[in-house]
């Protein structure tokens, strides 16, 4: 019973309550870094790291933090961790840091991080908070990767993956390079792709919910 609840904490944010596709939180970095899957994966990793650290720390000190100043304290914690991640990225993955540019410091004001800190980490135990952080982080990564997957394919006709630590290409395939639609590499394409993906996910979600209520009704009868 307990493990089921714990696994739910991790699994829910992945798809069913995905912070970006379902809760529609923190769309700004999604639109900004989803041009290539390289950038998307890099950003996703950074967000996972920040979420993990902040949730851990905040749930550790949750009993000591006075209620009136909890928001400033959370923000100090989040900002420090983001700065640390940025410094580490500048040192160990310089090309990725340069291509992500201003979006790394923008993780600080990402709704997901403060939202999870406020809604979950400040009220639950350390273990649960860590699971929640990982779940939401991977949910973010899945969403950004999905958008980047389609955007890069439509905008350049293929994909390119490279190792951020050594800047060497792992693979690069561009099967449809002649039919590329450069519009999807720009902001218009970002909005279009994100909108269509959110639409499809919502449609699937609603139809599965309808099916569940129908089933429940049938069982009652």
């Amino acid at each position: 019973m307990d493990t089921q609840k714990k696994s739910k904490i991790f699994l829910n944010p992945l798809l069913k309550e995905n912070p970006i596709l379902v809760l529609i939180l923190g769309l700004c970095p999604v639109l900004g870094v989803s041009e290539t899957i390289d950038k998307a994966i890099g950003m996703g990793m950074a967000v996972i790291l920040v979420l993990f650290c902040t949730n851990l720390v905040i749930s550790l000190i949750r009993k000591l933090v006075p209620n009136e100043v909890r928001i400033p304290i959370y923000i100090v914690i989040i900002a420090s961790f983001v700065t640390m991640v940025q410094m580490l990225m500048n040192a160990f993955t310089p090309e990725l840091a340069e291509s992500l540019g201003a979006f790394i410091p923008l993780i600080t004001v990402n709704c997901i991080i403060l939202g999870r800190a406020e809604a979950f980490a400040s009220k639950n135990s350390v273990g649960d908070s860590i699971l929640d952080a990982l779940g939401n982080g991977f949910g973010f990564l899945i969403a950004v990767f999905l958008v980047a997957f389609f955007r890069e394919f439509l905008a350049t006709g293929g994909w390119k993956l490279s190792n951020p630590f050594t800047n060497s290409t792992i693979f690069e395939i561009r099967p449809l390079a002649d039919f590329a639609i450069p519009l999807f590499g720009q902001n218009t394409g970002a909005f279009l792709t994100l909108g269509i993906i959110i639409g499809i996910v919502t449609a699937i979600r609603m139809s599965s919910e309808q099916r569940k209520t129908l089933k429940a009704k049938k069982e009652v009868q």
Partner: peptide, 29 residues
């Protein structure tokens, strides 16, 4: 007493953490 003290404590801890990270990564960069 409580509020400023807690704020100060958090700030101190995290500034030292930041200084530590800087100390580690700056030479690399």
């Amino acid at each position: 007493v409580r509020l400023p003290l807690s704020l100060a404590a958090v700030c101190l801890v995290f500034s030292s953490l930041l200084a530590l990270t800087n100390f580690v990564t700056d030479p690399i960069i």
